[in-house]
Design a protein around this nucleic acid. Structure first.
Lengths: 322, 322
DNA sequence: ATCCATAAGGGAAGCGGTTTCCGCGGGTAA
DNA sequence: TTACCCGCGGAAACCGCTTCCCTTATGGAT
């Protein structure tokens, strides 16, 4: 048995070639496939990365997830995608499950909420997992004591604001997503800061918070228009919401020259909409690759933070304002 | 240990309430979380469904995947998404891995290729897995000896063809996807059959096969137009391709009144494009729910086949032809 | 010819659980 | 009282591997 075990997987002990061949032949003949669970028990660890996401979209793909999947493929790391649920307690549950699985690497994607009461529980679950030898990498906002890759939300939004002001826009509304979402808040703030540099502000009643979805944005834009609020541009904190806004405006027959729309993320689907959407491009594949590289290098004493920055892409949805 | 084990998970043996409470309290204090791998070894089976997909899209979400994820959540079944790769040998590898995992249910999404040399290997891997007590459900074309849910590709395309003829279209091109893909072939055939009932045909040079992607469709449509082929409508075998075609036509300034486009699937993202796309709606959530229900009911002697049918949705991309 | 390092095989002890089986105590029926 | 059954705790076997450790064989250096 010992020899067979050594022959069938990369052990550091060598097996005489003849025996290895015999083992392999027998395994093949018997259709043997290792019981991974038993391996995990014996080894005390399950190879691969467990990717925890909150939801599985049914409309637009999440480019980060796609990026991580692809990066893991390249590294030949088994990838195990778990859709946890939106609550932070769901996340805790899944982290514990991963701990029970003795997973090698746990990676989470998804923003945190400000003042989420579940955060301490999540942190301690992750710390416990780490204490038992796991590696954790967060793709989200900085601030938790783990290796993190995040992206320049506030800077990107800031630059977008600049760009839009230069295009001649003055009266903005903001579709801000969940009021407590950190990503949304950073983007909103960055945008407001960018405007502030040009002495522009956005009245509170034009900063709409709520659901973080395309449909919610559609409805919210409708409200905005119906309330007769005078605006010349809408900034949505992500592309999915921007598309919702765009579609509402189109359905209502309002052209971009009257109300422009800009988003954030530069998801692939933007290629297929009209007008093409102005947005902040983020290099999602880099984010994913960076996350994996953090995960596969030795853990440093201090948690590392890697920030990936984006850049503004001006397209047809924000024509120059004459 | 025995008592603890019985207290911590649903065993059929009862534990005195006082002891159960003590066990739970201790577990809580110690931050105990069961080693799932060890459980899998001891029980000989790992609860939950392993969902095998070929790829993870980075543009439009796969509604089937979203549906299965959601359905599994509802059933409280742990769901484990594995992105295998496009080759059928990749699928075999992952089936064997699932076998090694002693996974309870394996579900695969994704079309088969006609005459794929890997199919026998896949079938035997799945059979072996089933022989060891696993349940397999395929979401794909019928024809393999396993419980299968498939959707009415050919019927839907047939009806779409009817509808388009009624709208006044006569000269079609077809973006047919992979030449050997069964889904694509069924849809193409169904469409041609529908046309045939009205004595219409599509010359071979207007049935374009190739990549199954949005980008490939964009390029292919360009070729079609450049070759100066006279058509009044394009049928793409899925929505992603249809969107590629649509976007090309828009970029080229060709309106729907000149060349119409129809797709297949009715993915959510269609809401956000202009013109809105005519397509065949498929109830993806039903497909997913059906698959899960096949998986969780006792296995019958004969493999079951459940066919979900769709219906045509006419939208702006195929205006009535005057 | 002797010694020692090294390669390689194999027995057996885990890994962390589950489950069978045995035994004990107490309640119920005769 | 006595016999029997049932509920429940705990010892130990077992799940399918990995790996430690012991042993033997081999070959080069002295």
């Amino acid at each position: 048995m010992a020899t067979a075990s050594r022959a069938l997987n990369g052990s550091d002990r060598s097996v005489k070639e003849a025996n290895r061949a015999r083992v392999l032949a027998a395994a093949d003949e018997l259709g043997y496939s290792a019981n991974v669970a038993a391996q995990a028990v014996a080894r005390g660890r399950q190879r691969g990365v467990t990717l925890l996401v909150k939801t599985m979209p049914d409309d637009y793909a999440n480019p980060m997830v796609a990026g991580v999947v692809e990066a893991a493929r390249r590294e030949q790391l088994p990838l195990n995608l778990i859709v946890a649920g939106t609550d932070s307690s769901d996340l805790v549950r899944e982290v514990n499950a991963a701990r029970g699985q003795r997973a090698e690497i746990v990676m989470t994607i998804g923003g945190r909420q400000i003042g989420d009461r579940g955060t301490p529980a999540l942190v301690s679950a992750l710390q416990r997992y780490e204490a038992e030898g796991g590696r954790v990498v967060l793709i989200t906002q900085a601030g938790l004591p783990f290796d993190t890759v995040s992206y320049a939300n506030s800077q990107g939004a800031h630059e977008l604001a600049q760009a839009m002001v230069e295009l001649g826009y003055k009266k903005f509304a903001i579709l801000g997503g969940y009021p407590n979402g950190m990503t949304q808040r950073d983007r909103t703030r960055g945008f407001l800061d960018g405007l502030a540099e040009h002495n522009l502000t956005v009245p509170a009643d034009r900063i709409i918070t709520g659901d973080f979805t395309r449909s919610a944005a559609y409805v919210a834009t409708g409200d905005l228009v119906r309330r007769g609020i005078e605006i010349d541009a809408i900034f949505a904190v992500n592309d999915a919401m921007a598309l919702g806004a765009l579609t509402f405006l189109r359905d209502a027959g309002i052209p971009s020259s009257q109300i422009a729309v800009a988003g954030f993320d530069d998801i692939k689907a933007l290629r297929d909409v009209t007008p093409s959407l102005t947005t902040v491009h983020l290099p999602w594949d880099d984010v994913a690759a960076e996350a994996l590289s953090l995960a596969t290098t030795a853990r440093p004493d201090e948690p590392r933070l890697s920030v990936v920055s984006g850049h503004v892409v001006v397209r047809a949805s924000t024509p120059p304002r004459t």
